Amino acid sequence: MRVADLTDSRAATDALLELLKRGRWTPRAVARFLLQAGDRSVRQAARRPQALVQITALHGLLAGLARNRRPGPGWVAASWALSVLHLGLLDERDHISAADTLTLARGNLPATALGSTRWSGALAIALDLADGRLARHQHTVTPFGDYADTFADAAFWTWLTLRHEPNRLVRAAAITAWALPIATVTAIGIRHGTMPERPRPTLLRPAAAMQAVVAMRHLLRR
């Protein structure tokens, strides 16, 4: 069976990574990996027209809010592309949930005026708690929402820290808490040819504590 025909998102990802590993990461193997990954992404998006319309409408609204701002529309366009290319992670669902909408909105805060306010860190935490509770209450947890949550955290908090945090130690800690785990998991997946479990921060782990620290410092800073 071709990778594009696999319905299980994890199985398809493992098959793609194994393809890359068998090819020893040569330019030809990388090109084949990208072509097959793109083919599957397009097919999965075509099978979920409702989700495609929802994501396009949401990002259209966000693009309007991001007009004449930096990073602005470019950030929103990247978010749209990543979302559309990963619709296969919705598994059996053909639409995104309300929780997914909140997650994507959180990840795009840096592109809007809300991202530059003193309250942006507190707002991101509130959206994070709300989308998690909503997903559990409505039983709409999917790999799409799970991974979108991780990348929304990494994108927003890394941006907020590098853009507004003057303390070098706090900035280094932010990179360690959010960007480093994603880079590590990606490297492990490529090296071993299988998708590892993503880091799962909880209230007792460093990423959650860093959110509180960065948000409070940003709120109290003049």
Rank of each mutant, 00 (worst) to 15 (best):
V141F: 00
M216F: 14
L17W: 05
L17I: 12
D8A: 10
T112H: 07
Q138S: 12
R191Q: 10
L104D: 13
R221S: 09
A15D: 12
W159N: 06
R2E: 13
T26A: 02
G72W: 07
D128E: 13
T194K: 13
E92R: 06
A77S: 07
G60N: 11
D128P: 07
V185C: 07
F33W: 00
D39P: 03
R200E: 12
P199C: 05
R48S: 14
G23R: 05
T103L: 10
G145M: 02
R200C: 10
H218K: 14
R69S: 01
V170A: 09
H192Q: 06
A12I: 04
L160W: 12
N167Y: 02
A31K: 06
T161Q: 10
Q50H: 15
F151W: 04
Q44K: 11
T150I: 12
R205K: 12
D14Y: 03
A66L: 03
A154I: 11
T186R: 08
A130R: 13
S83L: 09
R221M: 11
A11Q: 10
A173H: 04
P143Q: 01
L134G: 00
D8E: 14
A51R: 04
Q211S: 15
D149H: 01
P27D: 10
D14F: 03
L162C: 04
R22T: 15
Q138P: 05
H137N: 09
R10S: 01
T56V: 14
W80P: 01
R163P: 06
T194Q: 10
A208M: 08
T202I: 04
P196I: 03
L90C: 09
A215H: 10
L204Y: 08
